[in-house]
Amino acid sequence: MGMLLGRGPGVKDRTTRSAEGGWTCRGRAPRVFPMRIARLPIPVAIAAVSLALGAQPAAAADPWAPGPVSTVGKLIWDAGGGRLGLCSGAVVEAPNGSVVATAAHCVRSQEAPEPPDEVWFVPGYDHGIDSYREDGWRVAAFHTPEGWDVTRATTEILPHDYAFLTVGEKEGRTLQEAHGANRLAFEPVEEGAEVAVLGYPAAGPYDGESLHHCAGLTDVLTEGEAQRPNLGGLMLEGCDLTAGSSGGPWVREWAADGQSGTVVAVMSVGSGEGMVVGRPFPDEARDLLATAGA
């Protein structure tokens, strides 16, 4: 079964083989789909062209109608060769007021086992590629679970595809003081609850410059419904969020102002055929969050 890593404009597909590299869908004959995960590097020139053309997204992942969300943002770093690496993330409550939740594969991968040298989190990002350093908060520390061991096959470590980032302060203020924060819920995640999946998809037909979302009911994948790499994950059908949305929050229970809610998972993988899987936070993630938020 093929797993495509780093699929996106200007990036060649890199495929690894695995007997367990897919997942099956509830309520239908078992099918196995390729899983695609991406820290998406895109040429800066392509991002600029997409912005100028104003490419319209597909209906399956709609623009977030209220506009930018102050506690949801975009991770951006220099990927070399005139390219930028892109992921999504969300501010979560922490004692130090400086923690962002995202996907572990946005931080470390087989191809890049160490985090990038300089990563910026831009809360409420909206068409701001030219000023991401000025608008962003620089990541000071990266926290991935022990289970995210990139020397092992991705299919073995996928259940640990979550991470926390600690960002520095700006002008004497923390990220949480300046932009607010989401609550974070640990497993178990309630089955059949309304959830919104947010992120900045940057592979076609999207340009990564505005916030998009899918919405539906939480579907917790259990034994017999999914192959091992995705057990415990949350599945959502009818969602074509593409690379660049990795690490984006799965949010429930929005506050009245629409700027924060409860994050129950982060975007992990997609089938490429309208099905995505979010990775919830297991109980052992509490210690990792405590370290990031100290």
Rank of each mutant, 00 (worst) to 15 (best):
A19Y: 12
L288T: 00
R14K: 09
Y125P: 00
H105F: 00
G27N: 14
S70Y: 02
L84I: 08
M35I: 11
S109Q: 02
C25H: 07
D126F: 11
V263C: 09
F281Y: 10
L4T: 02
M275R: 08
V119D: 09
K170D: 06
L184G: 00
L5Q: 05
A19K: 12
K74E: 13
V269Y: 02
H127N: 14
F281Q: 04
S260A: 15
C239Q: 09
R14M: 08
V107E: 01
P113H: 03
E114W: 01
G192V: 15
A104M: 03
A60Q: 09
E114H: 03
T262K: 13
T291A: 11
V269Q: 01
A47R: 03
G204I: 15
G293Q: 04
G258E: 03
Q227L: 15
T151R: 15
P280H: 08
V150R: 01
P249I: 14
V276I: 15
A140T: 12
P57S: 04
C239D: 06
G82A: 08
V266P: 07
R183F: 09
V195K: 06
G128I: 07
P280C: 15
S246P: 01
G21E: 08
A265G: 07
F186A: 03
P159Q: 08
I37M: 12
P280Q: 14
A55G: 03
Q227V: 11
G224H: 12
R133P: 15
G6D: 10
A47L: 12
A140K: 13
L4H: 01
A140P: 02
G248Y: 01
V32E: 00
P188Q: 04
V189A: 02
Q227A: 12
P159C: 09
T16W: 04
A94R: 02
T291P: 01
T154V: 15
V49Y: 04
G27A: 15
L211M: 10
A104T: 03
A58W: 04
T174M: 06
S271A: 05
L86Y: 02
G258Y: 05
V264S: 09
V122M: 07
T15D: 12
E20C: 09
C25F: 10
T174Q: 03
H105A: 02
A103K: 02
Y125W: 13
D126V: 15
V69M: 14
S50G: 11
G10P: 06
S109K: 00
H105K: 03
A61R: 00
G278R: 07
H127C: 12
P115L: 02
L86K: 00
G22V: 11
